[in-house]
Simulated scan of single mutants.
Amino acid sequence: MGGLTYIDFLAKFGIGGAHPGGFGLTKYILSKENITNNSWVLDAGCGTGQTAAYIYEQYKAKVFGLDINPIMLEKAATRFKNLNFPIQLIQGSVEQIPFEDHTFDYVLSESVLAFVNKPKALKEFYRVLKKGGRLIANEMTLNSVLNKFEEQEIKNFYNVDSLYLEKDWITLLQDTGFQSINVSSQQVDFLYGNNKQEFNFSPNFEPELFEVLNKHGHMLIKYHNILSHRIFTCTK
């Protein structure tokens, strides 16, 4: 596939709500929190800005979007400009967040931790959260242990360094210092209508990216009983 990755595919296709459960699940999760117009929210790995825009529109919170991918940031910037939303975008890594300690009331991570150094990123999330601040994470989670071949196949395709079971995530969150850890695996798209997948295609994208899309579909079918997700909510 010419070195093109799953992240390249997401960026060039401009997919909003690519995380497990989709945009409907995002809205449902956020509705369970106490976000207000006084809340400072970091959308860590904001992608094309679909969730960040929703948070501002729905709650009028002070929203910041952080992403390392310039293509996604450009699409997010265009979205916010067209909507006239005062959302600040920052290019940077979740492993080294360019904000002071105790800045945010909420950190949101949607299918981001899976692709980075998990302990390092979680320590950064913990650092930038205020005391009592909330982490909301929707992340790839294995339902059962894989054999070595299966594990390597998934790691290679998604370019991830590790695959976690639910208990592994909980242990890591506890080790980071998070408390009141709640775990769920809801699929609630049907509760929130009009959640068709959003695309924002780049003008020039490689035909090979369709191969990545096909392979992604193949992986989802092959590992549909094993490759899942969990929603983790916890407090600093």
Rank of each mutant, 00 (worst) to 15 (best):
T5F: 04
Y6H: 10
Y6E: 06
L10E: 07
I15P: 00
A18Q: 02
G22Y: 01
G22T: 03
I29F: 09
I29R: 04
E33L: 13
E33G: 05
N37P: 06
V41R: 01
G47E: 03
A52N: 04
A53N: 06
E57H: 04
Q58K: 13
Q58S: 13
K60D: 00
K62D: 00
K62W: 00
L66G: 00
D67Q: 02
P70S: 12
P70V: 09
M72Q: 13
A77V: 05
A77P: 02
T78C: 11
R79C: 06
F80G: 01
L83Y: 15
L83Q: 15
N84V: 12
P86M: 09
P86T: 05
Q88T: 05
L89H: 00
G92A: 09
S93I: 07
Q96V: 12
P98E: 06
F99K: 03
E100L: 13
T103P: 08
F104K: 00
D105T: 05
Y106S: 06
L108G: 04
S109D: 05
E110W: 02
V112H: 03
V112R: 04
A114T: 15
V116I: 14
P119H: 08
K123L: 12
K123E: 12
E124D: 07
K131E: 15
G133W: 00
L135F: 07
L135E: 08
N138F: 07
L142R: 06
N143K: 10
K148A: 14
Q152G: 04
K155P: 13
N156M: 06
N156T: 14
F157H: 05
N159P: 11
L165C: 08
L173H: 07
G177K: 05
G177N: 11
D189I: 08
Y192M: 12
G193I: 13
N195C: 12
K196Q: 14
N200K: 10
S202G: 10
F205I: 02
P207Y: 03
E208D: 10
L209C: 10
L209H: 05
F210R: 10
K215E: 15
K222Q: 15
H224V: 12
I226V: 14
I231G: 01
T235P: 03
